[in-house]
Design a protein around this nucleic acid. Structure first.
Lengths: 209, 209
DNA sequence: CTATAATGCGAGCATTCACTCGCTTTTCCT
DNA sequence: AGGAAAAGCGAGTGAATGCTCGCATTATAG
């Protein structure tokens, strides 16, 4: 016993063809979320758009939620890539430079795929709750590490509190900038927002004198 | 013609009893959203919890969305009440005092009904999009009015930009404070967060010298 | 070439759920 | 009292949708 029955039931994409199927499904899910919204998305529709049958869909994704989670993961990974790279890049810069860079990146990150980001933020019910928390934790710990390294440039303040406030503020400005008012954003306006936000955060962190 | 047929089809609660029914339905909707989540909520369930029949439900609410919208409205009104009152109260205070008060109120507002707030923020698909925008606009314009009145205490900065950044930052800190980490918040911690956030915002607004 | 596994198919099942309709009960008004 | 309007009822309907299952097609190995 314990011989695997020949019918491998679920998941696992070993051949070439199946990898393509999985990709097509994730891609189709993202497109549908953006173009038709979460409510209109259905597994049948996703399969149709992916050019795949529902049966195949369920060979790789145990549920609709899993499909959405995959989209969220992919998107989060893109953003985390940007964030990780940037924090490495600014590791030795003084906080003035680094903060400005981080604010810029926050906005860029929200601009990777604004429509998808909006749908994920506004329309997805419960899914990926854990993913979002893990995401936040990583951002928090990366930023906190930078702050630790540059403690000397900063006033006396609890690093967790500082990180929490700075990350919250920067993320909120970036989020609202990209998602509110759609694309009424001139480049000049964006630069102003980056400058002012960076000024606020730096002023907050540096010694008051 | 144009004689109103005796069957008034929808809406409108004129008698006493019906007012109670409407209230019970809204209340039941809120309770279900909090206790079972948006996904599990159904009109049948809402009617059942309200102690009312589905038929009656549809006499007052044309759709499930309308029910959820009513809950959102009620909650928004509670918050806006707080915010309006506070901005009147602080109208003549200097920005140090006023900002501190506003940060406190932001957190209080999120604490009115944190569970409901979380559900409305995280689980409600599209509904009340307009409501949320109107809500944000009002907050923005109230805060902007305060800033205008106290321009002399501030450095030279575009008021819309300043309002946008301050409101975003304060809202985000309040939101994350109340919703993340659940209730691991000691009162001392909250005070620290209020102090630091207020410091950040005030430092941002005041003349740099 | 043949056997076996991997991948793909899609009609249909089971369920859920928003909403309707014909009717009864309660309230109001004279 | 009595009639009309308002309020309430809840089984039933129709449509949508997540997912299964038995079978077909394609790839791999011997």
């Amino acid at each position: 016993m314990a011989r695997k029955p020949p019918t491998k039931p679920r998941k696992n994409a070993s051949q070439e063809r199946s990898r393509a199927t999985v990709d097509a499904l994730v891609e189709a899910t993202a497109r549908i979320l953006v173009r038709e919204g979460f409510e209109k998305s259905s597994t049948n529709r996703i399969a149709e758009v992916a050019g795949v049958s529902v049966g195949s869909l369920y060979q790789y994704f145990p549920s609709k939620e899993a499909l959405v989670a995959a989209v969220i993961d992919r998107h989060n990974e893109e953003i985390m890539g940007l964030v990780r790279a940037t924090l490495t890049e600014v590791a030795d810069m003084p906080i003035e430079k680094a903060v400005r860079r981080l604010v810029t990146v926050a906005i860029d990150a929200h601009r990777i795929n604004p429509e998808l980001h909006r749908v994920l933020a506004e329309q997805i019910p419960r899914a990926g709750k854990l993913d979002v928390e893990a995401f936040n934790r990583e951002v928090h710990s990366l930023v906190r590490a930078y702050f630790e390294r540059h403690r000397k440039e900063m006033r006396k303040i609890d690093l967790d509190v500082a990180t929490f406030i700075c990350v919250s503020a920067i993320e909120a400005v970036a989020h609202n900038t990209v998602l509110n008012e759609a694309e009424m954003l001139s480049e000049k306006m964006v630069r102003t927002l980056v400058d002012e936000t960076a000024r606020m955060v730096v002023g907050f962190l540096r010694p008051s004198a």
